[in-house]
């Protein structure tokens, strides 16, 4: 039971925007909102986005657009999303909780919740995704890497909602990797990582390396990305990048793992994700859960 005074279910974007206010929380799937009290601080009413026409998952102008009502299950199964960089986003979505959770949880909610351990932000960051916010003054686009400000804090004003997440379709031949470590098979990430590599004529020409749950926000490891550029995609390169991920990590200790262990795993996960992208190791079996 959420302790709220009202439940709103607007039928149009305009109605929804008119309702948004600091003491009103947006609810999409509700799998974070109903479970994690931090999202309910100061909240007196909820605005359910469920009836808004935001269930689109489409390509438009070179972007895959994922609307606020698209569930993790739909993302994980979407052929469009699977086509992006070795399906890294599909794989991240496929391991977000259990099937019942993925049937309810939205990808946009996963982004909006802004938790450093979330499973889709690393692939989204590796794919240079954008967030499309809409408020009373109109729409604005924020690069995902600028969106996260801290645990459960993001660049979103209380009168804005996220309409969709936009993922630029990468050039053909872009490879990706994803790796998640949890305490058990069905667990929130102790650490996760995603990466994207583009190799031309035997040299890495573009690299993104992102590690989750090792910093207040999902962490892009700029040093690792820089170090990879111009190198051959070989074992030495990915191991070096992993080392730089360890150096960049600023994890905390909590009931799931010690900071020391997380720092170590930052390197392991980054390296393993990169190995997949570099063709040095097979991809994981996450899609079996989609």
């Amino acid at each position: 039971m959420l302790s709220v005074d009202a439940y709103h279910r607007p039928r149009s974007l305009e109605q929804a925007l008119a309702l948004l206010a600091p003491e009103r929380a947006v609810v999409a799937g509700g799998t974070d909102l109903l479970v994690n009290p931090r999202y309910m601080a100061g909240v007196r009413e909820v605005v359910d986005l469920g009836s808004l026409p935001l269930a689109f998952l489409e390509v438009r102008a070179g972007q895959v657009r994922i609307g606020a009502n698209v569930t993790m299950a739909a993302v994980a199964r979407s052929p469009l999303v699977r086509g992006l960089a070795d399906a890294i986003l599909s794989r991240g979505a496929a391991v977000c909780g259990s099937p019942n959770i993925r049937n309810m949880a939205t990808l946009v909610g996963n982004v909006a919740a802004a938790l450093p351990s979330a499973d889709t932000p690393p692939p989204l960051l590796a794919l240079d995704a954008w967030v499309l916010l809409r408020g009373p003054a109109g729409a604005r686009r924020v690069a995902l890497q600028d969106f996260f400000l801290g645990p459960a804090r993001a660049d979103r004003r209380p009168d804005e909602l996220i309409e969709c997440v936009e993922v630029p379709v990468p050039p053909p031949g872009t490879a990706g990797g994803f790796y998640k470590v949890g305490r058990t098979a069905d667990d929130i990430a102790t650490v996760n990582a995603a990466c994207v590599l583009r190799v031309e004529e035997g040299r890495i020409v573009a690299a993104r390396v992102v590690v989750g749950a090792v910093a207040p926000v999902p962490l892009r490891v700029a040093d690792a990305e820089a170090a990879l550029l111009g190198r051959a995609p070989d074992e030495a390169a990915v191991v070096e990048a992993g080392r730089l991920a360890v150096a960049a990590a600023q994890p905390i200790s909590d009931q799931r793992a010690s900071a020391e262990h997380r720092r170590h795993l930052a390197g392991v996960c980054a390296t393993r994700a990169l190995r997949q992208a570099a063709g040095l190791a097979p991809h994981g079996a996450e899609l079996a859960h989609a």
């Binding site: 479970v35 305490r183 069905d186 667990d187």
Partner: peptide
Amino acid sequence: VRNPGFVDYKVLSCLD
């Protein structure tokens, strides 16, 4: 108790 629920008290599932 730091982990008073199934979120952080990990009972194994059939996948384990």
